[in-house]
């Protein structure tokens, strides 16, 4: 017995001899949370720069406050894509793999839709404002493009998950790609909420006061 051999009581290992602790499958998820933390603080820096540059300027974003229609539709698309993905993951848990794949596929299509909409948004916006117009244009386009780049990264992760040969529980890494890629996708969606609030809604509130 272990306890007899060890003079100081060692931490007990609560398992039957001959059996093994389960395989750890949460490494990727932890790493993803930390990635989200650091990416989140990247966006905090971007937003802080936005407000820092806006500070003490009475002509910030008021000539042509960004139009809301595209941004809000995009918000709706992105947020509902999160719900679709969530549904897909719940199917995965019930081992309905085809449904899970379908959910993933729809999410990707919605993400692509988001990118298409943002292309239109850019085109409309570009007439009034370009990154080299002034500091407002610079930070505005940088934040929006950073977000778009994150959407693209998220889409790549989702597409990778879509192409994986099988979804059944596995003892090979990646253990839970669906979940991990999904976390990132939800994160990207939430960032867009802040982008819309800070970059789109707030200037309009200031100008039109609704």
């Amino acid at each position: 017995m272990m306890a007899a051999a060890a003079p100081v009581q060692a931490t007990r290992l609560p398992r039957q001899p001959g059996t093994r602790y389960p395989l750890d499958k949460s490494r990727g998820e932890w790493a993803m949370w930390l990635t989200i933390a650091t990416e989140g603080s990247l966006f905090v820096c971007l937003f802080a720069s936005y407000f820092y540059l806006a500070n003490n300027k009475n002509r910030w974003a008021i000539d042509h406050p960004p139009k809301l229609h595209y941004a809000l539709i995009m918000l709706a698309v992105l947020l509902s894509s999160s719900f679709v993905l969530h549904w897909g993951e719940s199917q995965l848990k019930k081992q309905r793999y085809v449904a899970a794949r379908v959910g993933l596929g729809i999410t990707i299509l919605m993400g692509l839709g988001f990118l298409a909409l943002s292309a239109f948004e850019y085109m409309e916006h570009w007439k009034d404002l370009t990154p080299d117009s002034n500091s407002y244009g610079s930070i505005f386009y940088t934040i929006v493009s950073f977000h778009a780049a994150h959407v693209i990264m998220g889409l790549l992760m989702l597409s990778y998950t879509l192409t994986l040969p099988r979804y059944s529980p596995t003892s090979r890494s990646p253990y839970r790609p669906y979940h991990v890629a999904g976390l990132y996708w939800h994160f990207v969606d939430i960032v867009w909420v802040f982008v819309v609030a800070f970059l789109y809604v707030m200037p309009n509130v200031r100008v039109y006061g609704f």
Partner: peptide, 8 residues
Amino acid sequence: AEPYAVAS
């Protein structure tokens, strides 16, 4: 630091 899994 209670062990609960084995990582590969």
